[in-house]
Computed example of a mutant assay.
Amino acid sequence: MTETAFSDESAHRLCPLPDGRKLGFAESGDPQGVPVFYFHGFPGSRLEATLLPVKGLRLIGVDRPEDIGALADFLEIGEFGVIGVSGGEPYASSVAHGLGSRVNALALKQMRAYRMKRANHPAADQDLREGPMMAAMVKSWREGLKRSSLGIAADARIYGAPWHFVLEDIKVPTAIWHERADTVVPISIGEHYAASVPEAAAHFTESNGHFSIVMNSYDAIADFLKSKA
């Protein structure tokens, strides 16, 4: 069930940053719920956070995964959870590492791997690709590319570059969801994160795809994030 207590304008908000830039973000779900910053996949935009079922969460999707501390201050949020989906995982992990004193939980779904192959999607994904979910995803992708392709180009470079931290240094309660039959991101990536992040809880499913696991696991993910708030 989707909670949409926020107005349509909440999908098109801007946060002024100290250096004069503005960070685009969107809010959805329960305004009084547990605040959770959502890092979208590759490609994507803040709108991706408005597409998912939400129960008791205040989801905040960001266009660019930077200056999250400043955005939290702008929204008068002290502690918060973090979700990283596919290409958003490196950024969610970075926030959990760099702002660990403010992050109460980290949820990772289908972690992104560099140099990913073209894939035949499982039947579970095909059902989503042929329905309204795909139209909504395309809208998010178009929003991310509306002004420039520079953001996507920067993401592609970052995925292949060395990180400034190691997963073993993440000290935030972490849960990982990954589909064993994922043809986009291999299960070995999820297993690597599960083995590296201290005390991470791993949930490896058997009947989803790269896209459908997000929908089918969302209640469990929301429960995890709420339990750590």
Rank of each mutant, 00 (worst) to 15 (best):
R58W: 06
L52A: 07
D73R: 13
I83L: 03
R21C: 05
R46Y: 05
G81S: 02
R142K: 14
N120M: 13
F42C: 08
K139N: 13
G84M: 01
S140T: 06
M137S: 15
V62F: 03
L128V: 06
A11Q: 07
I221K: 04
H203C: 00
D127I: 10
R147T: 13
I152P: 07
A181D: 12
Y193W: 10
L71K: 05
D8I: 09
M137L: 11
Q110N: 15
A92T: 03
P162Q: 02
S93W: 03
H203E: 03
A49S: 15
R115Q: 09
V34T: 11
V34A: 03
S227W: 05
L14R: 15
E79A: 13
M137R: 14
G98L: 07
P65V: 10
L52S: 04
V85E: 04
L17C: 00
S149D: 12
G160W: 14
A161I: 13
L47V: 09
A222V: 00
V34M: 02
Q32Y: 09
K55I: 09
S212W: 08
S45V: 01
A72Q: 02
M1C: 04
Y193V: 06
Q126T: 12
E130W: 06
P16K: 15
S86F: 00
E199S: 15
S28E: 07
G20L: 04
V34I: 12
R64T: 10
S149P: 14
R147H: 12
S140P: 03
A123F: 07
S188A: 15
T205S: 05
V166K: 10
I221Q: 06
Y218G: 11
A222C: 12
Q126K: 11
G33Y: 03
F37T: 00
A156N: 14
K22V: 10
V185K: 08
L57D: 07
